[in-house]
Amino acid sequence: MGQILNFLIRAVLQGTPLLYGATGEIITEKAGNLNLGIPGIMYVGAISGVMGGFFYNEAVKESVLSFSPVLALLIPFLSCLAGSLLASLIYSFLTITLRANQNVTGLALTTFGVGFGNFFGGSLIKLTGSATPYLSLAKISKVYQSFLPFGSKNGFMVYLAVILAVVAAYMIRRTRLGLQLRAVGESPATADAAGINVTRYKYAATCIGGMIAGLGGLYFIMDYSNGIWQDGGFGDRGWLAIAIVIFAIWRPELAIPGSYLFGGLYILYNRLNVSMQYQPLFQLLPYAVTILVLIIVSVRKKRENQPPASLGLSYFREDR
C-alpha cells in the first residue's frame, strides 16, 4: 500500500513538468500555432532559471547581496520567464509575422533550445571549476521545495501547475477571451472579420504558452532534481508534453490526469525492476498510449475532440 502511494506521488512529481509543457502548448495551439519548439523552450526556461540562480549565488558569495529566500525564489523564476519569453518570441516572429512554416520553425527552435541549454550549462559548470559534470544550486532548491508551510516534500510549483491548468481551462471554455482565442485557432478569417486582432492573439497565446512551458523546465531543476543541472538531464520530457496535448484532446483540465499518467508510465520500469535491456520498451509506453488515444478519437469522429481547425497554418488576410 505504502509502495503504491509512494509510486503515485513519484508519478505526480514526474508529471508536473509535463503538465507545465502541456498547458503551455494547449494555449498556444488553441490560437492555431503548433509550437514544436516547446521542448526547446523548456530547456531554455530551465537554463535561464539556473543562470539567474547561479549569478545570484555568486553575488551572495562575493557578499554583494545577502541571501534572502524571496530573491532566491524570484530571480530564477523571473529569469526563467524572460528566457522562455524570448524563445517564444523567436517562434512567434518567424511564424506569425513572417509566416514561416510552423513545423520547421518549431523543430529548429527545439534543436536550438537544447543546444542553448547544454552550452550555457556547460559554461556554468566550467565557471565553478568543478570536476563533476553537473552544477548544484542546493540552497536555492531548498527555497523552492520548502516555500509552502505544508507538504514539505512537494514544492509550490507542483500546485502552481495544477492551478495554471485549471485557470487555462476556465479561460478557454468560459470567458470572452477564450471564445475569441478559440475563434482565432479555428477560423482566423472569421475572427478577423469579427474585429478580433488575430496577430495579437497569436502572439499572446504563443508567448504566454511558452512562458508556462518554460516553468516546467525550472520546476524540473529547482524542485524535482534538487537544484542540480546536468547537460541533457531534462531528456525528452518536452516531447511527452506535446503528446499529452493530443492525449488531453486540447483540454487543460484533462492534461492534469494525462500528465500524471504519463509521469507514472515514464518511471514504471523503476518500480517493476525491469532489467536494463527492456527499459526502452517501457519508456515508449506514453507514446503508445498517445497513439491509442489518436485512434480512439479518430474512430469516434467527434468534432469537439479534433485539433483546432487552422492548427499549423499561417494566416493570410484575404486581399480586399
Binding site: 470572452r176 471564445l179 479555428e186 477560423s187 472569421t190 472579420a193 469579427a194 478580433i196 468534432r303
Partner: peptide
C-alpha cells in the same frame, strides 16, 4: 458564410462584440 464551425449559433453571433457583458 464567415462562421466558426465548432461554435454554437450564439457563440458565433456574439463573437467580436465587446460592448455587452459576456
Amino acid at each position: 458564410f464567415k462562421l466558426v464551425d465548432l461554435f454554437t449559433a450564439t457563440e458565433n453571433i456574439v463573437l467580436g462584440i465587446k460592448k455587452e457583458k459576456f
